[in-house]
Every structure is written in C-alpha cells, then in structure tokens.
C-alpha cells in the first residue's frame, strides 16, 4: 500500500514539475546568484552598483514606489553609510506642503522620503512610452515567474537577428524570453551603459547582474534576516523534535507489552 501511495506522490510531483516548466517555453538563463540557497546573502558592492544602474538607466521610466532612500542604508541591503544615504536623497526634489500660505512647494528629499517617481501617474507614464506602462520595480522580481533569472534573461534576451516568423510593429522589440517574444522597452543595457567607480568592468552581463541583484533585494528587503532566522529555527526544531521523540518513546515503551 505504501508503495502505491509513494508512486502516486512521485507521479504527482513529476506532473506538477512538468506543469511549471511548460509555461516558460524557453528555458531561462540560470545564474548562480549569491542570494540563492540556504545561506544566501546579498553582495553589498553589487547592490550598490545595482542602485547606480537603477538610478542612471531604469529610473527615467520605472518607479520604485515602495522604497525609501533610508532603505538604502538599512541592514541586509546595499548598506550605504548614513552620510551617503543623505547625499543620495539630497540629489532629488520632492513636493511637500501645503505651507502656511496653503501652497505646495518643492524641497530637497530626505532619507525618509519615498523614491521619486519618473511620472506623476500611470497615464502620464503610458503616454510617454507609446502606450506601454513601464511597471513599478519595487516587487517586480517577486511578480514574475522565474524571479531573478527571468528578469536577467529578459535583460540579456535582446537579439539583432529576429526569427523569420516574427514581425515587429513600430516601437516593438524582439526579446527571446518575453512572453510572445515582443517587448516595448528598447534594449536598456549595453557594455559601458554606466561607469562604475569601484573599478568593476561594466560589461553588459555585469551591469545586468548588479541591477537584478538590486531589484531582488528591493522586492525582498528582509531576505537575509529571513534565511538566518529560518536556519536557526530549523536547527532548534530539529533538536526539539528529537527530544520530543525520545520522550514519546519512553512514555510508550511499556504499552505494547501489556497484551
């Protein structure tokens, strides 16, 4: 009986596994991310570079409305210093008010302010991008099947040679990994799109990896704390389960013999 049941389970998992891969017709590029796995952690330098990429490349179209500048200095993230965070925030202007005269005014952003949005609302964003809405990137990695690998694949999935069965309309680009292989965003990242100050070679791959790492952190800012807590709790529970099992064995040890 157990055998049958086991076979059911194996068959079931095999089938579901199949179902997941079927949706993504093209296999995504798999990257060995430092934040994957049980002990996964973010590479701080990479996150800092990733923020630079976001700021210089993505931020002109994509908002990140759930993030505040202070997050950049928080533990488990890019961990910029307090002064650096202040300096980053002060590069932006935000609207505040109303003041005593009842008027709105602009002031320099503070670390407590949210990331400044490129467009005031989604219709303005659409109008400026030929009808396509550049999605907010705060939780983008969690909102896509395949997560970090998917976003990375899309960034790397632009090709000059377009398959003959695909015809592109005006303002639409070919992408290997996008559903329907069509994307409205022009290729955002090329070799040397940004200039890194820490001497890292700004290749297309490196830039994409950095920005995807940054986006992963943005979507899951407590990832490091979660994995750390998870590991500790599992060790703790294992010990407690073993102790509980020993106690149960002891309590039940003389029950069978009563027969």
């Amino acid at each position: 009986m157990i055998k049958i049941f086991r076979t059911f389970l194996i068959v079931f998992f095999f089938l579901t596994q199949n179902s997941f891969s079927e949706v993504n017709k093209t296999d995504l590029i798999k990257v060995n991310w430092p934040f994957d796995g049980f002990f996964g952690k973010f590479d701080k330098a990479s996150l800092q570079r990733g923020f630079q990429v976001y700021k210089e490349v993505c931020a002109s179209c994509h908002s990140m409305r759930h993030l505040s500048y202070r997050n950049l200095g928080e533990k488990g993230g890019p961990e910029f210093s307090k002064e650096e965070v202040k300096a980053i925030a002060s590069q932006f202007e935000v609207q505040d008010g109303p003041n005593q005269d009842g008027e709105m005014f602009t002031r320099t952003a503070l670390p407590s302010d949210k990331f400044v949005k490129p467009y005031s609302n989604s219709n303005a964003a659409r109008a400026a991008n030929g009808g396509a809405y550049p999605p907010d990137m705060s939780v983008l990695v969690k909102a896509r099947k395949g997560g970090a690998n998917y976003v990375y694949s899309v960034l790397m999935g632009y090709a000059d040679e377009i398959p003959s069965n695909i015809t592109l309309e005006e303002g639409v680009y070919f992408n290997k990994y996008m559903t329907g292989n069509k994307i409205r965003m022009p290729k955002p990242i090329n070799d040397g799109s940004v200039e890194y100050t820490d001497g890292t070679n700004a290749s297309e791959e490196q830039i994409s990896k950095d920005v995807v790492a940054f986006l992963t952190w943005a979507a899951e800012p407590h990832l490091e704390a979660r994995k750390r807590t998870g590991f500790k709790s599992i060790i703790y529970l294992l010990i407690l389960t073993i102790l509980g099992f020993i106690i149960k064995k002891k309590i039940w040890s003389n029950i069978e013999t009563k027969v």
């Binding site: 703790y236 407690l240 102790l243 509980g244």
Partner: peptide, 16 residues
C-alpha cells in the same frame, strides 16, 4: 536522566 530530558525539553519549548 528522564527528568533531565523533561526539564530540557520544557525549557527549550518555553524559549521557543
């Protein structure tokens, strides 16, 4: 020894 295991488990349980 049995008491020790009980106390240990109860203490650990309380901590958890």
């Amino acid at each position: 020894r049995r008491d020790f295991i009980y106390t240990l488990t109860a203490t650990l349980g309380a901590v958890g």
